[in-house]
């Protein structure tokens, strides 16, 4: 659509007046906020590098280099204008956040490594976290892998079981008669309450934890699938029935698709519940995963490791939620007004 000339930075476009109306964006050519962000990051880098630490920290140099790299990258992006096209527009939107981040990081650096205003060892400086990632990445990565395997295994089992149960009790009143009272009694019980029982009832702590994660997931998925199926517009069934649809068609092609928005609410709630059970199960039973890493770090008073693990865990959970939202957006693209995550 656009010629190379039109996509070039300011100078090139100025050469010809006819190009002007075709320029894709009316944004200013120099990205002021970007320049400010670059300055903030470079200043933070200088501060980190020049101001001597009050104590010995191994990765102060690396931290300063990373900060400087971000600053230089922002400087390039701000100066190069339209060269990056659409990607730069996204960067522009987070500009104010980038400035705030540099300021917070610099403040953190001063309060910990430089002035030691905050009590040690509870407050680690940024380079302390960086050191965990550079030196202990193998153990941290291994923990993430174990957590993911346990979480996904339990979640998939729980979601499948919850979905099936929900459809069954939403559709068949006989199934509802028998399952509903059990669900009412057992469902609200926190999955963690099963922990002592699960660890002796199951042969391994891994299978016990999988069961607990599945249990935590299954309850909200069951309830919301059920209410989704029960709430399907009766007229949808009438329409299909007059056209010769059988029971199978009514369940698979009418009830389930109509219930999907509600099912996804259950899947979100189930995912949230599964995170908390995962951490508890890892702290109490399985000697692996991020929950275990957190506890191990605390045992050694390695608070830097703890913050690093928390950060990784936040990224993992947020990533999984994002993934689920993406899946929903794909499957439920027919809906209007979806919440943006």
């Amino acid at each position: 659509m656009f010629s190379a000339k039109q996509l070039q930075p300011a100078e090139a476009a100025n050469q010809s007046i006819s190009d002007e109306p075709l320029r894709p964006a009316a944004e200013p050519r120099v990205w002021t906020v970007g320049l400010l962000a670059a300055a903030a990051w470079l200043a933070a880098a200088a501060l980190t590098d020049r101001w001597p630490d009050a104590d010995d920290w191994e990765r102060t140099g690396l931290l300063a280099e990373l900060m400087a790299a971000i600053g230089v990258g922002l400087l390039l992006a701000a100066a190069a204008g339209g060269l990056f096209g659409a990607r730069l527009t996204r960067l522009r939107r987070i500009g104010p956040w980038l400035i705030a981040l540099a300021i917070v990081l610099a403040g953190w650096e001063v309060a910990t490594a430089k002035l030691q205003l905050l009590p040690r060892p509870f407050f680690a400086p940024p380079q302390g976290l960086l050191e965990v990632f550079t030196d202990d990445w193998a153990r941290l990565g291994d923990s993430v892998l174990h957590s993911l395997i346990l979480l996904i295994g339990g979640y998939v089992i729980g979601a499948a079981a919850g979905f099936t149960t929900g459809v069954l009790i939403g559709w068949s009143s006989a199934a509802g008669y028998w399952v509903h009272p059990v669900l009412r009694l057992v469902g609200p019980l926190p999955a963690t309450a099963w922990l002592p029982l699960a660890f002796f009832a199951f042969p391994t702590s891994g299978s016990a934890s999988t069961f607990l994660v599945a249990l935590a997931t299954a309850f909200p998925v069951t309830v919301l699938t059920w209410s989704g199926v029960a709430g399907v517009n009766r007229a949808y069934y009438d329409v299909a029935r007059t056209m010769g649809a059988g029971q199978r068609f009514l369940v698979l092609k009418v009830a389930i698709p109509a219930a999907m928005p509600s099912v996804f609410v259950g899947l979100f709630m189930g995912l949230g519940a599964s995170f908390s059970v995962l951490v508890v199960a890892e702290m109490m039973g399985v000697k692996a995963g991020l929950g275990w890493y957190l506890q191990w770090a605390q045992g050694w008073a390695a608070y830097g490791n703890m913050y690093a693990a928390l950060l990784v865990m936040a990224l993992m959970c947020s990533g999984l939620i994002t993934l689920l939202f993406r899946l929903r957006d794909r499957l439920l693209s027919w809906q209007k007004g979806l919440v943006q995550w």
Binding site: N233, P257, W334
Partner: peptide, 24 residues
């Protein structure tokens, strides 16, 4: 029957809604 409300299935395109009887 054609009802007062169109009762089209919102998760199906117009084509797939029209094909409902054949699919059933």
């Amino acid at each position: 029957v054609v009802f007062q409300d169109p009762t089209l299935y919102p998760w199906r395109t117009v084509w797939k809604n029209a094909a409902l009887g054949l699919e059933a």
